[in-house]
Amino acid sequence: MAVDIPNDGISLRFKYGPQTVFLFVDCDASFDSISAQLLEVLRERYPRGLLKGQPSSPDTTPVPPAGEDCIVVYGLPRNPRDLRAGWKALNADGENPTTLRLKQNSVLAFALQTADEPSPEFRVEIPAFEDED
């Protein structure tokens, strides 16, 4: 059976630590609804929390359960061609992918912020391929 995929959406890549979450979102959806969708996926996919670093490290960031106050904060790459250049905070209040001019497969860093926490930092690990000797 064929699946109908609407033409009014784009795929976005959300990065935290070594994880990348691909979401297909409506171009006119608010970032509040995108955040709710992202949190739902994170709760299902990462019930033990998001890795902060290498998979060999047990250090994780817990994903808040449904109903708990949590704000998803987003960052854009300083240089879209070099994600190692860092991230700049994105004010997504009242915005959507169209108003922010996001394109297919745009990359966004995200952080989870609870009410008692100051602005979180964007923890993103970019894979590196080392040359063989």
Score class of each variant (00 low, 15 high):
residue 94 G to P: 00
residue 110 F to T: 08
residue 109 A to Q: 01
residue 76 L to H: 04
residue 73 V to G: 02
residue 4 D to L: 14
residue 85 A to V: 02
residue 13 R to G: 05
residue 5 I to K: 11
residue 45 R to W: 09
residue 66 A to Q: 00
residue 11 S to P: 04
residue 16 Y to I: 10
residue 112 L to W: 14
residue 100 L to D: 02
residue 120 P to N: 04
residue 21 V to Q: 01
residue 48 R to I: 01
residue 82 D to P: 04
residue 17 G to S: 02
residue 54 Q to E: 12
residue 65 P to Y: 06
residue 16 Y to N: 14
residue 31 F to A: 01
residue 66 A to R: 02
residue 62 P to L: 10
residue 3 V to C: 06
residue 13 R to L: 15
residue 101 R to Q: 13
residue 1 M to W: 10
residue 71 I to E: 15
residue 10 I to L: 13
residue 102 L to G: 01
residue 74 Y to R: 01
residue 85 A to F: 05
residue 22 F to G: 05
residue 109 A to Y: 03
residue 51 L to A: 13
residue 20 T to R: 09
residue 61 T to G: 00
residue 107 V to H: 14
residue 26 D to G: 08
residue 34 I to R: 03
residue 4 D to H: 13
residue 124 V to K: 06
residue 11 S to E: 14
residue 72 V to P: 06
residue 27 C to H: 06
residue 75 G to A: 08
residue 46 Y to S: 01
residue 102 L to T: 09
residue 41 V to S: 06
residue 43 R to C: 07
residue 77 P to N: 07
residue 27 C to T: 11
residue 112 L to T: 04
residue 60 T to W: 05
residue 12 L to R: 03
residue 95 E to T: 02
residue 74 Y to I: 00
residue 17 G to D: 02
residue 80 P to C: 09
residue 128 A to C: 09
residue 107 V to P: 01
residue 12 L to F: 11
residue 29 A to K: 12
residue 129 F to Q: 12
residue 22 F to T: 13
residue 38 L to W: 00
residue 118 P to N: 03
residue 7 N to H: 12
residue 127 P to Q: 06
residue 103 K to Y: 11
residue 5 I to H: 14
residue 2 A to M: 11
residue 112 L to N: 12
residue 131 D to K: 10
residue 91 N to G: 09
residue 86 G to L: 09
residue 110 F to A: 00
residue 95 E to L: 11
residue 119 S to W: 08
residue 107 V to W: 01
residue 89 A to M: 09
residue 89 A to N: 03
residue 105 N to A: 06
residue 73 V to Y: 03
residue 18 P to G: 07
residue 114 T to H: 13
residue 92 A to T: 15
residue 110 F to N: 00
residue 64 P to K: 00
residue 129 F to T: 13
residue 39 L to Y: 02
